[in-house]
């Protein structure tokens, strides 16, 4: 069942185009990953989905409702975990959950039951009556996550919910997200952490400078059954470097020597790869260049991400 559908979303701030024609969808029970470098437009997209920012053009519908129209039914089915903490430091964990629960109209024994459940799920049961400003970063993140779930939303927007937390809290939060999806909740998940997205998301969109660079299931985007070959050598002269460039996919000169990459794509046969590797090794032997190591590197989302978005630093 389709929960969210975004079509040709566009948003500018002055002359800067933050989101430039993004289109995607999220089904019930699906975790949809949105990855991109800083300034890619992820948070702006999330805010438009939540109804906190109005798109310049394009449409968003969540279960048939537009977030910009402040529909009560939509507000009740939407849970948002913002990138920054959004909880009250001078209230206790239980008071935070109680307040946001009541804001969503949950009351009485049902509210008490949900507060207990969320405190348990987020591992904050023994800290229920502790002021949030006394919490560690990880505890705050978990509560921040829990607050978004107190009204049992059907669609959850997660904007980098694990930023700055320890591995234990991260695993806990990721487990919670998996459970949400298993219960049929649609999740859109923005993150920098490729391994998280790769481990959790059913489909992924890579965005940069507001544009969609790739979108699909992980299998569609990444050939995880194959690996590239990385050959490291001692320092070598320019002539052998030139010769190697014609044999391998890339040759990089580092401080220690050379890194020669022989890529293994889905379309290339194993024989072709081993032939090219043999040619590279032969050329190195002939030139008397010392071989330091040969490594294999599996294809993954991070590799694809870097390939698509480049290695240049972002603001």
């Amino acid at each position: 069942m389709r929960l969210l559908e975004a079509a040709n979303l566009r948003k500018s701030f002055g002359t800067t185009v933050a989101v430039d024609g993004l289109s995607f969808f999220v089904d019930a029970g699906e975790i949809f990953g949105l990855v991109g470098p800083n300034g890619a437009g992820k948070s702006t997209t999330m805010m438009m989905l939540a109804g906190l920012k109005q798109a310049d053009s394009g449409t968003v519908t969540i279960a048939g409702h537009s977030p910009s129209q402040r529909n009560h039914e939509l507000q009740m089915m939407l849970g948002v975990v913002p990138q920054d903490l959004a909880i009250y430091g001078d209230l206790t964990a239980a008071e935070n959950l109680d307040f946001f629960g009541r804001i969503y109209g949950v009351q009485g024994p049902e509210l008490d039951r949900r507060i207990s459940r969320i405190l348990k799920e987020t591992g904050l049961e023994s800290h229920a009556d502790q002021y949030v400003h006394e919490f560690s970063g990880g505890m705050k993140r978990r509560l921040n996550f829990g607050v978004a779930l107190v009204h049992d939303p059907r669609f959850v927007i997660l904007d980098e919910p694990t930023v700055g937390v320890d591995p234990q809290s991260r695993f806990h939060i990721l487990d919670l997200i998996r459970h949400l999806a298993a219960d049929g909740v649609g999740v859109i998940y923005a993150s920098h952490y490729m391994e998280e997205v790769e481990a959790m998301c059913h489909r992924v969109a890579i965005v940069d400078k507001g544009r969609m660079l790739a979108c699909g299931t992980l299998d569609e985007l990444v050939d995880r059954s194959h690996a590239d070959l990385y050959v490291r050598t001692a320092k070598a002269g320019p002539e052998i470097q030139k010769q190697l460039t014609s044999l391998a996919d890339s040759v990089e000169a580092t401080e220690d020597g050379l890194v020669i990459i022989v890529k293994r794509e889905r379309k290339t046969s194993p024989g072709e790869v081993s032939g090219r590797l043999e040619a590279v090794l032969h050329a190195l032997r002939e030139a008397g260049v010392d071989l330091l190591s040969i490594e294999t590197r599996e294809h993954n989302l991070e590799r694809l991400f870097i390939e698509l978005t480049g290695r240049g630093l972002r603001d």
Binding site: A50, H72, V80, L85, I103
Partner: peptide, 13 residues
């Protein structure tokens, strides 16, 4: 600054 205003603005209020 605490981000709670954003939460309240998307809440049914």
């Amino acid at each position: 600054d605490a981000g709670t205003l954003g939460r309240l603005l998307i809440a049914p209020i």
